[in-house]
Structure formats: C-alpha cells, structure tokens
Write a protein that binds this DNA or RNA. Structure first.
Lengths: 207, 207
DNA sequence: TCAGATACGTACCGCTCGGTACAGAATTCT
DNA sequence: AGAATTCTGTACCGAGCGGTACGTATCTGA
C-alpha cells in the first residue's frame, strides 16, 4: 500500500528546504504564500495538500531547521567539559549565523520576534523553542557542577542564560551584516568572560 | 503666521507615543495602518497628513524611541570608567527591556530583523541604528585605552561588539518572556566576564 | 478495462492591506 | 463678511493576502 492515486510531482523534502530559506530571509509574516510557492516550485493547492497551510509549513520548516542547521548545538552539549561546551557552542554558532550559502542570522529569530496579534502563536512558538535549548544547556552545566568541572557555587541556570543570550545577540548582529571574523572576536571575548565568571576548569594550555 | 486653517484635533506627540507601543509590540510588518490609527485615536487621512505614511511614521517612532527610551545608553557612555560604562549599560538595558509599562524587548529588534523584500529598507535602517550605538561605545573604549583605564592591548571595537551583542540577546530574551530578575543574573555574569576579558580596572570594593 | 484515489493547474473566494479622493467643518487673513 | 487654507470623516481604490472549489491528469487495485 505504498501510494495510491497520482504520485506527487515534486520532492517534498527539497521543497521544504527552499521554504526554509524564504522564511529565514523574510520572516514568517514577511514571507507570503506566493513567495513560498514560487521558491518551492509548486502551486498553492500543492502546498496546502502537502503541508497543511502556511503556519503548519512554518512549523515543519523550523523542525527541519533544528535538525539540519542546529546540529552543532547538540554536538556542543556533548563536549566533555563545560568550557568546551561553551567554546564549541559559541564558535559554531558564529559559523552557523554567517554561512555564505545561507541567509544571515538564525531562523528562530529571523522568523519573527514580534508579529501581529493574529500570528502571536508563531512568535511564542519560536521563543519557546529557543528557551528549550537553554534548559538543555542548564542541565549540562548542572552536571558539570556535580562533576566538579564547574565550581559548586556556580549557577547553571544563569550561566546557560548568559551563553544563550550571547548566541542570540550574535544572530541579531549577523543579520545586521556583521562579518564572521568580527563575530569571532566577540565570541572569544564571551568565552573568556564565561571562563572567568563561571570559574570553569580550563583546558590544558600555556597560561 | 503660526497656524492657518483648521487646527489639528489631536496631540501629535501623544499619538506618536501610542504608535511607539504598537510598532514595538507587533513589529513593522505586523502593525497595520488600521492597528495604528485605532491606537492613536485618529483616522487614516490624519495619519498620512501628519506623518507622511506608514514608513515615515515608523522612522519618527524610532527617533522618538531613541530619545525617550534609550537615554540610559547616553547616560551609560558618560560614566567615568569603562567598567562603569558597561555596568550601567547592561543593568539599565535589563530594566529597559523589562519595563512593566512597556512591551517586552526593544523596539529596534522587535521592529523587525527580517521582512519582505518590499520592506527591506526598514530592517536595514534598524540594523544601522543599532550599529551606530556600537560605534559610539567603541570610541568610548578607545578613550579608555588612551587613559589607561583599559589595558593597551584591549580591542575597543571587539569589546564594544561583545557588549552590544549581550544587550541584543537580553532584548530577545526579554521578548520571549524571561523575567527581569533572571536577566539581571545573566547581566552580572556578562559584566564580570567583560571585566575579566578586557582587563578593565575595577571600581574600589572588597575583593 | 475501468473504478477509486490522489495530485495538478486554473481560476476564484472574501478579506485586509497601504493609500487616497472628496466634501464638509474649523480656523486665519484680508 | 468672505476667500484662502488646513484638518476631519466617510467612503473608496487597486493590489495582494491566505486559502479553496473544481475539473483534469495520472496513478493503483480489481
């Protein structure tokens, strides 16, 4: 029972990928259904049949983005020490928000921080997804405190919040056109600041 | 020759203030002209006659916002030491983006980081205005280096970029509903990080 | 071979968008 | 008083919005 009826005439994954770029570049409200179908190479009824509507498409787009473009965050959180977690996260985030083959910034911010009352759920959904990453990072830091990798008096939740604030600021900055190199400098300052403020154990190196 | 013809039936400054809130809460594209006129208590032709149009109104709104709601930044930059500049800026920014009588976040981000091609000038205008503040801060830090308040090898431009990144991240976080107290914790971490990473001279206190 | 099912393209739906024409009301200058 | 000027409210403009009805094309299962 694989497929009955006429088979779909386009690659749903490839079309979704095109939609990622449109929403990323123009935001949820700034991307019209016509913009989307033009970029995806399909007609409107196909979009509604395959994805359910604009908002449902957007949610699928965000899910795909999280999987395809946020992998570095999962990689970062798996690093062996808190310092390396933050170093990886901040450095990889700079690369991610300044990829030359992608729109500048980060979909979960470019998608829309503010919108009309009608679309408020979209902004809320994006905000919640950003905060979910922060919770994961806080738990990672809590583990680091338990291991002695971070000092006992370190506040894992506040530290995670600081790090996520930096990544969000980097994304906003990147969207404003700031270069990868310039953001890398700022990331190193943030990393040094994290190390000093948290008391994290540093990796072996010449001091 | 003060006024000829029928006098305006509303207070243009008060109406502009209402418009600030609408754009702040809903963003440029998310705020319709009808939303604006309803909040301002005027009809559309009055809006066009008094302000020139939606985009011109938005620019006037941003100018008013910069004057009324960003005063803390000018105050911060006038502090006597780099450390105090950053301490004031970060702490006051937290208060500004979490004012209970105002929308959460910051107009220059909520206004729109991404939008349709048609409104791209608006996003560019906001981005440029954010970066202007960063330049002013960099010059302040350059002066601090010259004075010996910051070490000779400190990079004023990169430090300013780091600080502005934090303020932008705070604004995004605030718009997501994070509380003032939670942001204050993160601001203290950022401040301690700035001090450590920059080598700024600290104010006298118990070490 | 043909019925059932699914996807496609066209053409359209009601609605809201940003923006304006126009006539009447309120004021100043002569 | 009356002309000139400016603001106000209503009613409207063309365009684009998100979303869909419908007839046709293409597939599977019997």
């Amino acid at each position: 029972m694989p497929q009955r009826g006429r088979p779909r005439g386009f690659d749903a994954e490839a079309a979704l990928e095109r939609a990622v770029e449109v929403f990323w570049r123009q935001g949820y409200e700034g991307a019209s259904v016509s913009d989307l179908t033009a970029a995806m190479g399909i007609n409107k009824p196909s979009l509604y049949a395959a994805y359910g509507g604009k908002e449902e498409l957007f949610r699928k787009v965000v899910a795909r983005y999280a999987e395809q473009d946020m992998g570095y965050a999962r990689n970062a959180i798996a690093q062996p020490t808190a310092y390396q977690v933050v170093a990886t996260l901040l450095r990889e985030n700079v690369l991610a928000v300044t990829r030359p083959d992608r729109p500048a910034g980060c979909l979960s911010i470019q998608g829309g921080t503010a919108c009309s009352d009608e679309n408020a759920p979209v902004a809320g959904f994006l905000a919640a997804s950003r905060l979910a990453g922060e919770h994961a990072l806080a738990e990672r830091f809590a583990g680091a405190v338990a291991e002695g990798d971070l000092p006992a008096d370190a506040d894992p939740v506040a530290l995670a919040r600081f790090v996520m604030i930096v990544t969000e600021g980097q994304a906003v900055h990147a969207a404003a056109g700031v270069s990868r190199e310039d953001l890398q400098q700022a990331a190193e300052i943030a990393l040094a600041g994290f190390a000093a403020a948290s008391g994290a154990r540093l990796p072996e190196r010449a001091t």
